[in-house]
């Protein structure tokens, strides 16, 4: 089925954020865009069946999140490590951060080492700026769980950044499986 003008007007502005979340979760451009295409298809075919109570954004993020988790689980079973070269080359050194003793290297490589449930909540709240209630809906957990996962994610990332700044942890070896 082809999308209507109305659907396009509502969905298109959300697509860049969906791509960003998908790529941050999967760390692979083609896989991520593939997933977003799946989300768009499902959104269009399921358009009239969706619960109007939930915001379109949290609905689409819910579809995407579930697809991303499926994909990550399948990759984990096959032992595929993501391709890091697809990450944007950000030079992450701001004076504000140096003041706090954080020597910035690759924050994206660091969050990749967070457990999936912690990485997703951090991305949804800190980057996609979903409300805590929206994040709870997307992750299908109570809001209290969102808060505790968020706290764990942030603390873990903080420790990794400190260790990273001290050069205590070697960069992860990459396993690229064709």
């Amino acid at each position: 089925m082809a999308p209507t003008e109305d659907m396009i007007a509502q969905v298109q502005p959300l697509t860049p954020a969906l791509r960003r979340y998908a790529r941050a979760m999967l760390r692979h451009r083609e896989d991520a865009d593939d997933l977003v295409q799946d989300v768009l298809e499902r959104a269009i075919t399921g358009w009239h069946g969706r619960r109007k109570a939930a915001s379109l954004r949290s609905w689409m993020f819910t579809i995407l999140h579930n697809l991303a988790l499926d994909r990550l689980r399948r990759q984990a079973r096959r032992g595929v490590a993501a391709a890091l070269e697809d990450l944007p080359q950000a030079h992450l050194a701001t004076p504000a951060l140096q003041e706090q003793g954080v020597q910035q290297r690759d924050v994206l490589a660091l969050i990749a080492r967070l457990p999936d449930d912690q990485r997703s909540v951090l991305l949804l709240v800190a980057v996609e700026e979903l409300s805590y209630a929206e994040a709870a809906a997307v992750l299908d957990v109570p809001q209290g769980t969102v808060m505790s996962r968020l706290a764990r994610a942030r603390e873990r990332l903080r420790r990794m950044m400190e260790d990273d700044a001290q050069g205590a942890i070697p960069r992860p070896a990459l396993k690229i499986v064709p």
Partner: peptide, 26 residues
């Protein structure tokens, strides 16, 4: 933690700025 928010947003912002690939452009 606040610094994390800033660098994460900045590190990932370029993805959302890319033009949509045709396959994703409704």
């Amino acid at each position: 933690y606040r610094a994390q928010n800033i660098i994460l947003r900045a590190a990932l912002a370029p993805i959302a700025d890319e033009p949509l690939p045709p396959a994703l452009d409704l």
